[in-house]
Design a protein around this nucleic acid. Structure first.
Lengths: 204, 204, 204, 204
DNA sequence: TATGAATGAGTTTTCATTCAT
DNA sequence: GATGAATGAAAACTCATTCAT
């Protein structure tokens, strides 16, 4: 590489880091493999980011910003739980294409044995939980359903499910099973409010 | 190490492989680290198992067999969805302790970039899906609920959720959030059948 | 760093070089570590000095000048060997604090394998030998003692001892042993002239 | 290299380590340079010794054992201080040839910034101090001279001087200056006992 | 069955040094 | 004068894997 602006190089590295992490997994992602993908000298990983993990986190950050912005728009249009499930399904498909959650879940997996990485990941998960919670609060807040399914808890459930979907997707070659999950959700969502019907007193 | 039987050595290695994978993650699990944990010569990983990945799969198999047997018993006692959720909660806590799903999800994560590993993992997920499906079928099969939530789809949902819980757990230092999820499920389960109430026809 | 005069930058680098060499040893002293300590861009090491070794030599030169000036004054007051030993003891303690000899002995150690460095070091040792010789000559010159212990040889001995003290100091955590050496010298010095007493003829 | 006995390889590495440390200095001694000198794969440095520093210490240990044994014999023959100085001169010349003290002083220099190395070096210096002390005790113990110059302190002085000689030697291309030092010692030694003559009371 | 030795390619990281700006 | 970017070599060290014993 001839001399370029640092921002350009950083971009190339962040791009390459995201791609490599998605295609090779954390164990296969090294300064060398990333640099090779970025067509850049591998020492620049350390020069610009100080190490592989910080670069990976930078990649996660950029991906998160982009998705958060895009999803904010998409989600703002949803007025009902049904619509929200629809949007979530679209988001899932987009993420699958873009590998966004793979990024996240690979890093979560890697953070098991790396406490300093874990901390950073936890920090980055928080805004997503908040985002989901606020969205749910806007859509079902105040309703009887929200009493049974508090938005905060539903936010935990959503992110959990999302992480799981990502892993499960890898085992689901034709995606039919994951699609079935979203179809299920679309069938259930319109009925969710039924959960709040007063239960008949149990006998015995 | 003094002379042992081959079976003994294999046991030590399988134990050590499981422990190492849970505590160090896939990226930190090598023939050497496993052998060190097993207090065994690292060449034996290759002699007995042919490599690291096959040993890891053997560890997964043993863990699966044990859990499948134990869970079969626990699950057989459940007669209702409520009871099933209760059992699942217990299972989750036990797995957390034992690191059983960590094993699974670490390997799933690793299999992203390793097609030959992926195949093996897929094979090993199938019996679990079947197990969950059959259990659900026994408990809610034939009911109106099973029409809305077919056991097969619910099985997909369960395993997805389980994988997600495992990842999410790592980000949830005090476990309070994961516990909240199960509490939520316990609140919802008794109301699940309400989902089948006939919906009033939508206007418009 | 905001703009500075070149002289200022050179000063900062020389300071940082001395500090780094003392605390990290030659093997741990690089253009980067020095520049980091100087809070200066590491390319300036090359711009201003042409490399790490020349910068280190510059640091040695500055340290030498300062010490030579200070010691000249201190030594000029000494009229007897006893007083000289006292002064030398003070100098040792000051050098220990200031790390002055560490600078020198680290460079001597490093010069083993670096002929071009060795040459420069030899050049810089000469004035010290001369300084010591002249001082000794002033104090004991012309005496019978000077016949037995020629100032030039004593100068060699002194510098040898000084280099050794510096290395030995590192192995002498509480400094008690090095202090014991100087105490010994203070006890012997007043008796040195006794060495010149005519020896009784040996019986063969 | 084809497969050999481990002991053989270890020998080759220890030899090469000693040679490399002497000729290249600590800063120029790496696993690679040592392995190259030993004509051995550089990973074996870690396989057999766990790292470069432990290998260097092993080299020091072997050198120390050999010298200690040899010097014990040489020194045992010395009955007077004069003879001891003579033996020491021989030892110095032998050490110079063999590079034995270079090994030691290079490691002492390197240990400045490496506390874990320093500890090991300190441990290894102790037996030498003891050896010198015992020897001096045997030769001058009980004499009036030993009152003025306690063997323990003299041992400190000796080792200090020895370390210094080693550094100074590097600056003394033709060795004439170092030789002059020993010549001086040989002239002074027979007069050492004069130091114990009762001093005339100082006037004033 | 088990072991210790060996290897070459891999890892992260730092190095001195250059150069366009 | 000063800087940030870049580079290729080298550092320490680990990897999976093979093989003679």
């Amino acid at each position: 590489m001839t001399k370029q602006t640092g921002a350009e190089t950083r971009e190339r590295l962040i791009d390459a880091a995201a791609r490599t992490l998605c295609s090779e997994g954390y164990a296969g992602t090294s300064a060398r493999t990333i640099a090779r993908a970025a067509e850049v000298n591998s020492a620049l990983v350390f020069y610009h980011f100080g190490g592989v993990d910080p670069l990976l986190l930078a990649a996660l950050d950029r991906s998160s910003e982009q998705r958060m912005a895009a999803y904010q728009v998409a989600v703002d249009r949803a007025r009902t739980l049904e619509e929200l499930v629809e949007v979530a399904t679209d988001i899932y498909r987009a993420d699958l294409e873009g590998g966004h959650i793979t990024l996240f879940s690979e890093l979560v997996g890697a953070s098991i044995a790396r406490p300093e990485l874990r901390e950073e990941i936890v920090k980055r998960a928080e805004p997503w939980i908040d985002f989901i919670e606020q969205t749910l609060d806007r859509v079902i807040g105040g309703s009887p359903l929200a009493k049974l399914l508090p938005p905060r808890d539903l936010a935990y459930a959503s992110i959990t499910f999302y992480l799981g979907v990502n892993l499960f997707t890898h085992l689901d070659a034709d995606r039919s099973r994951t699609e079935a999950l979203f179809a299920l959700a679309e069938r259930v969502a319109p009925r969710a409010k039924l959960l709040t019907v007063r239960l008949p007193r149990r006998r015995g």
